[in-house]
Amino acid sequence: MNIGEISYTNIIPLYYYLDREHLMDQGVTITHAVPSRINALMENQLVDIGGISSFSFGKNADHYSLVPDLSVSSYGRVNSIFLFSKYKIEDLSDKKIALTSSSETSVALLKIILDRFYGVQVSYQVETPHFEKMLEHYDACLLIGDDAISAYRKSGAYHVYDLGEIWYQQTGLPMIFAVMAYRNEMETEKGSLLSYVGKSMIESKERCQREKFVPVIKRVLTEHGGTFQFWESYFNGLNYQFSGEHEKGLNLYFQLAVECGLLKTMPSILKYSYK
């Protein structure tokens, strides 16, 4: 079994307390990569379970199932998915926007927001995430994860929009950026190991929450810098559950993605066949 681990700080609590030595003894490997890479590996059957973009789940809902009660979501500001713009968002008509190559969910979310919520038509180009280079050639850029956090610290006079905040203001529902999913055939091929991994991820999340993310924050400080107060606010501002409200939010996201032509059909979601 190969576990996909998104290489961003926001998802660390779901993996933090995994017994990696035990998993290695069971023949498990762990692949670290940005969301778009994990998505592609899972679609090509090179990753069996992992955190993937919600949009990727929507494209592959017939072949994937969700590990229950796990997501990376927000009720409002997510603080790591930003549109940086030289213009106010309502004035972006006919402008050019650089999209990070690291994301699927947030790219689709931005297109939904500009089309459905602001009625703005723009041109898009996917680029390697680099704050300065993007804004040298484009009117605005979308960055996610640690790239977005780093860029926010030097965003200066640019207009900055948190996509999680806009979504919540417009819908009153949480935005689900990533889910924990697995390929359906894992249930029959490696059912007991799948169950162990899923339960371990839930236990890791719950332990991190009981500890108020303090051990996670200390690790992130050594790797990324910043202040304890920033990371404390960041992790406590994220939501790692998956409840009925999350299901409503994800369904609406998929519905709007279909209406915008980003998904071909409405995914048949939220089968909890995981045991």
Rank of each mutant, 00 (worst) to 15 (best):
L46Y: 05
Y274M: 00
A40M: 06
V28P: 00
L46H: 08
T128C: 00
R183L: 03
E43T: 11
K88Y: 08
T100E: 12
N251R: 14
F230K: 02
R20T: 12
M24E: 15
V216N: 12
A151Q: 07
S56W: 01
S101N: 13
D146P: 00
G225D: 08
N251D: 07
V197D: 06
E43P: 01
L14W: 06
G225E: 10
I149P: 01
R210S: 09
Y152I: 03
F213I: 01
K218I: 00
K271W: 03
S36Y: 08
G76P: 07
L252G: 02
K218T: 05
S36A: 13
I149A: 07
G226K: 00
D19E: 12
F57H: 15
Q229F: 03
D19F: 05
G145I: 03
M201Q: 09
L41W: 11
L14N: 10
S74P: 01
S195G: 00
K248R: 15
T9V: 14
K218D: 14
V258P: 02
V258R: 13
S7N: 13
K275Q: 12
K86E: 07
R219W: 10
H22G: 07
Y118D: 13
H32K: 15
Y17M: 03
A178P: 02
D139Y: 10
S53T: 11
D91S: 13
D48H: 15
R37P: 00
E136Y: 10
Y253F: 15
M201A: 06
F235Y: 15
G27F: 07
L256Q: 12
G237Y: 06
E5T: 03
G27N: 07
L46K: 15
T227N: 09
L83Q: 13
A151F: 09
I97Y: 08
